[in-house]
């Protein structure tokens, strides 16, 4: 065994031991957080503790998460190869997929809507609904369906930024009566959270779709590509 292998193995063992030690030696939590969340639930405006934590008690974290997502997609846009998008080149040319999509699409949209709505009282929410929306976009893309509104760059970018802007806007709006940033007034909390989640769902869905769509299309000229493939070993 070479020195590199030995040192890599030693490093792996050391990290494993450190991880095990960290897990076994963690300090006991000083406060019982689940109990505190349960006690504060009436002030949250929703009935599901996870949603309450994500969008009310710790909404600042979620706001930053959305900002990071937006940043990631902006970088992906910037790194994209400068060439026109070719939806038909991405499609699988599969009539069965097209036919099935006609049945599946309404169902997928209903599931996304349900997940979004369910987020206020049971597992679900913006992230899950957004990724289901994105799955619909990916399937449409694979079926070779052209979506003109997705190719409209201005509209697409507005959609990508909508979630973060609404989140920020709501956070700033509640400061007008004098509340701290992102502290929703009790009587509007449920509505505000639903509005934020609705726009977040759209933006997250669009973000994930664009990450998939931004990958460069396959061969520009099939004949030339085949010729090149024949030359290379």
């Amino acid at each position: 065994m070479s020195l590199r292998l030995v040192s890599a193995a030693l490093l792996c063992v050391a990290v494993t031991v450190a991880l095990a030690w960290a897990v076994l030696d963690r300090p006991l939590p000083e406060e019982n957080l689940p109990d505190r969340v349960a006690a504060a639930m009436p002030e949250s405006g929703v009935d599901h503790p996870v949603t309450a934590v994500l969008l009310n008690f710790r909404s600042y974290d979620t706001l930053l998460e959305i900002a990071v997502l937006l940043l990631a997609v902006v970088v992906a846009l910037a790194l994209r190869e400068a060439q026109p998008d070719q939806p038909e080149a991405m499609g699988l040319d599969n009539p069965l997929l097209r036919a099935v999509m006609a049945w599946l699409l309404p169902l997928i949209l209903i599931v996304a809507g349900f997940l979004l709505w369910a987020g206020s009282y049971q597992p679900g929410g913006a992230f899950q609904a957004g990724s289901v929306l994105a799955a619909a976009g990916v399937l449409l893309r694979l079926a070779g369906v052209t979506t003109a509104w997705l190719d409209n760059a201005t509209l697409m970018r507005a959609g990508l930024a909508l979630g973060l802007l609404t989140f920020l806007g709501v956070g700033l709006l509640v400061m007008i009566p004098g509340a701290p940033f992102l502290t929703y007034p009790l009587e509007y909390a449920g509505t505000l959270i639903l509005v934020i989640e609705l726009t977040l769902t759209l933006s997250i869905g669009l973000t994930l779709i664009s990450l998939f769509r931004l990958t460069p299309p396959y061969a520009d000229d099939p004949d030339e590509a085949r010729e090149q493939a024949g030359k290379t070993p």
């Binding site: 997940l115 597992p123 679900g124 992230f127 899950q128 990724s131 289901v132 994105a134 799955a135 990916v138 994930l208 990450l211 998939f212 990958t215 460069p216 396959y218 061969a219 520009d220 000229d221 030339e224 590509a225 085949r226 010729e227 090149q228 493939a229 030359k231 290379t232």
Partner: peptide, 28 residues
């Protein structure tokens, strides 16, 4: 829910897509 949708589903799709991109002939 998030793991099934994003971790397995969309990441899988992105990885497969990348694989297709890596395998395409370089003349293109």
């Amino acid at each position: 829910l998030a793991e099934a949708a994003i971790g397995a589903g969309l990441t899988g799709v992105l990885l497969l897509d990348t694989l297709g991109y890596l395998r395409r002939p370089f003349g293109s």
